[in-house]
Every structure is written in C-alpha cells, then in structure tokens.
Design a protein around this nucleic acid. Structure first.
Lengths: 249, 249
DNA sequence: CGGGTCATTGATACGTATCAATGTGCGTGG
DNA sequence: CCACGCACATTGATACGTATCAATGACCCG
C-alpha cells in the first residue's frame, strides 16, 4: 500500500478516497531489497517510477577519487521523478540504507490519468517542489554552516520528514543512518560526524543510544542548527488551491 | 521574446513554430532590473512565474549570521517554478547579478493550456529535471570536491549553460560573476575563490581578463574539475518521446 | 565464539577562513 | 578633464576547522 505517500500528500491537501484507491491501483508490484543494495546505479538507463513504502534509501554520487556524496534521503512516501521517461541516463544512484520495500508504479497510467485526478497531480507537484527545496537547503547547509550546525540541522530535518509519515514518537525516532553515511550526506568525514554527534550529546541537545535518537528540547536543537522549517513547506496548500479542488472533481 | 528559453528547450526536443508563438503569447510584460536588485525576497508571498530573457540572476539564501549561499544561477532562458501557485512563502530570494530583463508569464494560461501543447509541457518538464540535476551536482561539488576543482567545475558548467543560449564563442564567454559571488556559490571565501582562479590561470587552464574568460584546453579544465557533463542531460529527448510527439499534435 | 561492521578517541597534517592592507579600473561630479 | 570615491581584485600572515591516520572498543550475527 502507498499509505506513507498518501500520508505525506495529505499534509498538503486532503486526498479523496477515490483518488487514494486510484493511486494504489497504479502499483505494478512490490520489491524487497536488503540493506546496502543498489536500486539504481548511476549511468543506468533510468528505470520506471517507484515509491519507497518501507525502509530507507538515499540518492548518491561517487566521485572519481572514490568518495561518495549522499544527495538526499528517501524515506517512506518518497518517490523518484520521471527521469525514466525524459532522460537517457541517470545522473545518480539510489542505494538502500536498510532493508527496504518499494512499489513500482505504472508510469504510463500515472501520466495519462493524472489528468483525471488533478488533486493528485497537484499534490505530486507540491511534492516535487518540496524535494527541490530540500536540495537547496542542503546546499546552504554544506556551503555555509559549520559541521556542528550541519549535523544538528540534518537531525531536525529528518525528524520533520519522519514525522510526516508517522515514524516519530514525540521527538524521538530511529535514525536510519550510520555515522559514515551521515558524513557522506553532509560533506564531512565519518570521524568528524562522530565528534559533532558526541558534542551534541555532551551538550544535552540530543540523547542517542545505538540509533535511537531523542530530542529533549526541540527549540534548543533548532537554535543550534539554525533550523527554520519553512523550507519544508508544510503549511498545506494555499486557499486558492483548496478552493479549486471541488471544481476538479 | 522568449528566444533563449526556446533555444534551450530545442536542445531537448524540436519545438513547432506554433508552440513557440503560443509560448511568446503567454508573456504579460517585460520588466527591467538594475544590477543587484531583488526580484524576489526570501519569505515573500511567491509571485508569478517569470523567465529571464536577458542578463543574469541567482537564487540565494541568507543565514542568521549574515553569510550568503548562492543556490543556483539563472541565465537567459531560465525560469522560476510554480512556487507561486502551490506554496505560501518562498524559501529563497532571487537577485540580479547585472542589469536583467525578465518576462512575466500568465500563470493561469500556462497551466491550463499546457494540455494543448504537450510538446512544451514535456520540454518544460525536462527543464525542471535539468535544474534539479544541477542542484544535485552542486551538492556533490561543495560536499566533496576541493576548492580548486569546485571553481573549475563551476566554470565548466557555466560554459555549457551559456552555450545553450548562445552566450559563448568557442569556449570563451563573459563571466557574469564577481569573485565574491563565485565564493558564495561554492561555499568558500572570496579570498580563496580569488586564489583558486589565480591558480587556474597560472596553470594555463583558463585565461581571464576582467570578466572575459577563455578556456584554451577544454579537456584539461574538465579534467581538473572532474567535470562529467552527463548530469546536464543535453543529449536530447529519448526516441520514445520523439516518437510520441506527432501523436500529441 | 570469531569475524565483521560500526562507534570512539587521540595525534597530527592540511585546507580554507579570516584579517588587514594594497592595487586597479571605472563612473561621477565638480 | 581630472580627482575622488567606490567596487572589485590581489596578496601576505596567521588562526582555526576539519581531514586523515591509526588504534581500540562495543556490539551483532551466524
């Protein structure tokens, strides 16, 4: 079931039951991947659209010298774009962070029938803008924030994103990353990522045990991170869009 | 006229004359801005869609400590997304780098009538993917490349992007940036950006005078940059899309 | 119970920021 | 037409953030 995707879209705009069923009907099949399995390799002919329905993955690039940059995370509800239709090769790979389930989507029907379900089309469009905003914020973080703030910032972002799909319980969640992966995502070394995490703990901003993370004082962590959640655009659709929905059905 | 936008889209897919006229008919008016003028300020209610038709601008964010990160450049032919329709506030500003002309687009007609011109819809979609790929590559560069490679890489990217809209003459072009702006785009200080440019010159990889830039040996510069142009997706539409176009008209 | 992945810590090297000063070109007003 | 001011480029000296290397410890799974 595409439940996480629907949960996410509903934060933007209420999705009618009929459209939910339609979305679910686009699933061709579900595939399970083990930890650290490539779903897409850079330079592949892009494959179809898919949605993460369980587990966690990330987009990444490998540089000539072998280092890796993680570009973005894919949590439940996150999906790939239509690269598959419009491009000849992918410019990045996607790898699982742990055991992961994806739903493969019928691309043709998705495109063709989005016209029949404008609510969904609009919600997916919002989703694309949301994703792009996350990329921009990552650029800002890596370019201009200290390592310390960057780690804090990413922890805030992950918290918000997991909350969208119900993977947090009051400001604590299971962090689906190793410290090496955290470093690769933030453009720093594994060792330094460790030190920044440690400092956040020592200062009481987070409580981490194994990979369970608790944020005792959200505002304090946001302060350290310079985190302003507006870039995630979680306020829901503007009134003009809500007003237009009935006309679309 | 939206000539630069059309030039760019045609690198992806031939655009019928009729669709070109239609695109041009969407322009509500043209606005001129002087150097260093804000077109959009962060936190504004997003304004409509616009296309840069002359001059150069950039998207940016300002951090709490006053530093700036430039997120992306907007060259002729580059346009804003439909933030205006779906979001409540913008998450970044847009400022001109020099005197700049923009074409304001009739958003309503753009959306409504894209259905009538699927070729344009698809080309604009490609354009969005192209832009997103640039953001991902910037993350990679800032996160994992040395300052030296980053500068070289950006010079390569700008060269390719300006070539798309006819602003290069065999591997030389006018760089529309100050060194401070270069630093802000690449997450480094102005002083260090200067030093890396200088080193590129000393090593004969670029020839720069004022803001005219010549690349005497493109392959050498690409080598230093670790630049692989595939991420720009300039190969044009896959055959499947080209085949579908006649059906859409 | 052994081997592997992941977390942790210390010592040291190096890339890049910062501060401060000087140089260069250019537009503007007197 | 010159002189001034201003933005931008350049350079040197120094401080500091972060990478790297290397070793040890903790945990998990088969």
């Amino acid at each position: 079931m595409l439940t996480p995707l629907i949960m996410k879209l509903e934060h933007f705009l209420p999705v009618p039951d009929q459209a939910k069923e339609w979305l679910n009907s686009l699933v061709l099949r579900y595939d399970d991947f083990p930890m650290h399995a490539d779903i897409i390799r850079e330079g592949d002919m892009p494959s179809g659209v898919f949605v993460v329905t369980g587990g966690h993955a990330c987009r990444y690039k490998i540089l000539p010298d072998g280092t890796r940059q993680i570009l973005d995370f894919m949590f439940p509800g996150d999906m790939t774009e239509l690269h598959s239709l419009l491009l000849r090769v992918t410019d990045h790979g996607i790898v699982t962070l742990g055991p992961t389930t994806i739903a493969r989507i019928d691309r043709g029907r998705l495109i063709a029938a989005m016209f029949d379900h404008p609510v969904v089309a609009v919600a997916l469009w919002w989703n694309a803008l949301h994703r792009e905003a996350i990329l921009r914020e990552r650029i800002t973080a890596i370019g201009r924030r200290s390592a310390y703030s960057r780690v804090a910032h990413l922890l805030c972002e992950i918290s918000e994103r997991l909350k969208l799909v119900g993977e947090t319980v009051d400001h604590s969640y299971r962090l689906p990353l190793s410290q090496a992966e955290l470093g690769d995502a933030l453009g720093m070394s594994e060792v330094y990522a460790n030190r920044m995490l440690r400092r956040l703990q020592d200062e009481g901003l987070i409580i981490a045990d194994h990979r369970m993370l608790r944020i005792p004082d959200v505002d304090a962590l946001k302060e350290a991170a310079g985190f302003d959640p507006r870039y995630l655009h979680l306020e829901g659709a503007p009134q003009a869009v809500r007003d237009a929905v009935p006309r679309w059905n």
